[in-house]
């Protein structure tokens, strides 16, 4: 199945990011295709390289970046990002900033758009 994932919540504060990550790992393992991952609302905070969590904790931004390195398209909403001070310069590698049109394409092309957040 072709899946797209949209994440609404920021890292650490909310389980949405972790749940989405685990969901994607499991889906890929099962052979599903991930059409894209879209960060919206406070979700845009998930991929800033400025985060520096304690060393014995997961590094959420690096984790997403590593997933991006496998070829999965990871998109940060530009409108939501600008509002929150997230710009290209602070992003981890393998993610990109783009518009809501990308979410639209994911919603159209994916068999299921799975949203994580409140």
């Amino acid at each position: 199945m072709k899946l797209a994932v949209c994440i609404y919540e920021g890292p650490y504060n909310h389980a949405a990011s972790d749940s989405a990550y685990n969901f994607i790992q499991a889906a890929v393992q099962k052979g599903h295709e991930i059409k894209g991952i879209f960060f919206y609302h406070d979700g845009v905070y998930n991929v800033t390289k400025l985060m520096e969590p304690p060393q014995d904790d997961r590094h959420i931004a690096n984790r997403w970046s590593a997933l991006g390195a496998t070829g999965i398209d990871i998109v940060v909403c530009i409108a939501a990002a600008k509002r929150r001070g997230i710009v290209d310069d602070v992003l981890v590698p393998n993610v990109r900033i783009s518009g809501l049109g990308q979410l639209t394409m994911m919603a159209i092309e994916a068999d299921r758009l799975v949203v994580f957040g409140d």
Binding site: A79, L100, M105
Partner: peptide, 25 residues
């Protein structure tokens, strides 16, 4: 499903609607 004020979900959700309306959907 959320109240319009108090969080940004509904406002930013509105922005998504306006963009998606420009597409073939």
């Amino acid at each position: 499903r959320k109240p319009p004020h108090g969080t940004i979900y509904v406002y930013e959700g509105l922005e998504v609607k306006l963009i998606m309306a420009a597409y073939d959907a």
